[in-house]
Each structure stands twice: as structure tokens, then as C-alpha cells.
Amino acid sequence: MRIFSSGFLAGVVLLAVVAVVAATAPLVSPHDPAGQELVFGLEPPTRAHPMGRDLLGRDVLSRLIYGSRVSLAAGFLVVGISLAAGAAVGAASGAFGGRVDMVVMRLVDMAQAFPGLLLAIAIMAVLGPGLGHLLFALCLTGWTGFARLARGQTLALREREFVTAAVAAGSGKARLIFFHYLPNSAGPLMVEAAFGVASAILSEAGLSFLGLGVQPPAPSWGSMLNEGRPFLLVAPHLTIFPGLCLMALVLAVNLVGDRLRDVLNTRGGR
């Protein structure tokens, strides 16, 4: 099946746009995202400020541009770290089996017994608010899914003939993990990662909405939504634009993820 489809292309283009904008934020943002002008608080969209201004008279567009950095960092960094850690632990757990597997999987069970967002909130309560802490908390709750998936794949692969052949040829556990189990689990892990990005972006927005993420005055889409909430009646532009951005970004990631899943055919089995 060809990977390119209209949805996939739309997703990739959107992601690319967001990535470029985030990378060049200081160049493309029309105003200082922290520059206050109290006189113009809650000003609706105008030509100079196409998305209006917030309560403190800051340009909403510029804040959205800077906020995209946080969202992307949350999405890709968290999933990158979780994927690396989770896949390694999961594959090792599957490869070694026995007591190691038992202990690791019970740990995973324990971590998964808590609702992810709630666990992240608990971790944030201990560490205190801040972007670094937030990313750490999301990683800590995010790796378990990958670990479970990698282990499952490894268990299935363990019985395959090419693995038996590798073992007969004298491959050690480490070699099996890095040259056979992980490369052959890459498809499902990729798909899981793609959807993981979307959910990490939403988790970051959710936690920032609760005030646990980036600390003011730095902008994040989640905290912008929260800041606009009391003014839905008088200044809806404060919530509409961050909401649209968040929706578009998550949609883009999911479009890409959907297509990956179809192409790699991880749903249907063999």
C-alpha cells in the first residue's frame, strides 16, 4: 500500500508548518509574546493583532507561536524518551523472561493502575510546577505502554525460526534484543508512538490548563486556554484561537498515525 494519501499529506504539511514556525519563533512572531500593554487588554482581533490581545494586552498570535514550542516539545520529546526507555525495558523483559519479566511487568501494571493524567498530577504535586518537571512526569507515565507492547512483540518473535537460528548461531541476549526483537517490533511501536505524540500534546495542554506546566509569563496553548476561560463572554478570541491550534495539531498527528497504521498493517494481524 502506498503511504501517501490526501490525509497523510495534509497531516505532514501541517506538522511541518508548526515545526518551522516553532523553530523560527523569534523571527516569525510579529510582537513580543511577553510585551504588555494594559491599555489594550482584551482587544478583539485587529489588523495589527489578527488574533487580538489578552487581558494584559499581549499579542495572542505571538503567544501562540511561542506556545507551539511547548506543545511540540511535549509531544516529541516525551514520546521519544518514553519510546526509547519503554521499548528497551519491554524487549529485555520479554527476552529474559522468568523472574525479570515478572518483576518488570508488575511494575508496569502498578504504573498503569493509576490513570495517567492523575499520576502525572501527583508527580507534579511533589516536584512543583514547571515545564521540565511536567515533561518528566509525562515520561514517567508514558513509557509503560511501549514496554508492554515491546514485550508482547518480543514474546511472539521469540518463537520464530529466524530467532531460533540466531540463538543456534550463538547470539547473546543483547544481540537478540537490538538486532532482532526491536527492529522487528518497530512497526507497531511506530504506530503506538504516533498516537502517543497526540496524547502527550493533549496531556501537556491539560496539565498547563491546570496551571502545572510552563509558568507565566511564558505561554503554552493549555495555559492560554485557561487564561481565556473567564472571558468567554467578553473576549472569546482568547480561547478560540488556542483551541483551534491545539485541535489542528492533534488532528495532523493523528492523520499521520492513522496512515502509518494502515500501511504497516498492525491492526489486522497476519
Binding site: L38, G128, P129, G211, Q215, P216, E227
Partner: peptide
């Protein structure tokens, strides 16, 4: 985390920045 107080803290920080005082806001 009171919305008005949080905003005021941001305004104070902006005013203090103009005289060279960097203010880190921590909201709990």
C-alpha cells in the same frame, strides 16, 4: 492560582523588569 492574582503577578514582573529586577513567578 487565583486568576486575578496570577495576572497581577505577571504585571508586577513586567514593571520590575523595567528597572532591572527579574522576577520568577511561582504559582501554587
Amino acid at each position: 492560582k487565583n486568576a486575578v492574582r496570577g495576572k497581577l503577578a505577571e504585571i508586577f514582573a513586567e514593571h520590575l523588569k523595567k528597572v532591572g529586577i527579574e522576577t520568577e513567578i511561582k504559582s501554587y
